[in-house]
């Protein structure tokens, strides 16, 4: 029988709790089962519009460099394997495997059929009302691998 005390300050550790990917997956799955496909998309649009207001502002002001910086930051934190090609007019990201999908699957949880919308909807919504568009291709549900192509809309 033991007695233990642990005290920590916020600065003692780095904020990185990958189990949140599992919770988000279940949130998406719950909306899907309870309300349907369109509701999942509606929720992700609402989330993007509120949380990503600063990123969207930066995208309008600084162009695709803002998205490049954003993705490099989160991919570095998540330990993702990816390639980026960037010009002023185009940004292509090849995510070789999604750290989110990897964590969910490796912990024995099933990926929601609409988990891919966290990529598609969020990026399309980020580009809405900006000079840019996004195309997601080659999404692999088992790994979350995909190619994101951001480009200038044609006038």
């Amino acid at each position: 029988m033991s007695k233990k005390i642990l005290t920590q300050k916020a600065t003692d550790n780095t904020y990185y709790h990958p189990d949140f990917h599992i919770a988000l997956n279940y949130g998406i799955d719950y909306l899907h089962r309870k309300f349907g496909d369109d509701t999942v998309r509606e929720y992700l649009m609402q989330f993007t519009d509120s949380y990503h207001t600063p990123l969207k502002r930066a995208l309008k002001k600084e162009g695709l460099k803002a998205l490049k910086t954003h993705y490099e930051k989160i991919f570095r934190m998540e330990g993702a394997d990816y390639d980026i090609n960037f010009t002023e007019e185009e940004l292509t990201i090849h995510l070789k495997a999604s750290p989110a999908v990897k964590h969910i699957v490796s912990n024995g949880h099933e990926i929601s059929p609409l988990f891919s919308e966290t990529v598609t909807v969020v990026n399309n919504e980020l580009c809405r009302d900006t000079p840019y568009a996004c195309e997601v291709t080659g999404y692999v549900p088992e790994t979350g691998a995909c190619r994101l192509h951001f480009y200038m809309r044609k006038p």
């Binding site: 709790h17 949140f20 990917h21 919770a23 988000l24 909306l31 609402q46 989330f47 989160i74 966290t118």
Partner: peptide
Amino acid sequence: MISCTEFIPAYNELFRFIE
């Protein structure tokens, strides 16, 4: 991708959305 570091705002928005 939504990073796990962005989950809390997504969670917060999910509660509001469901309500």
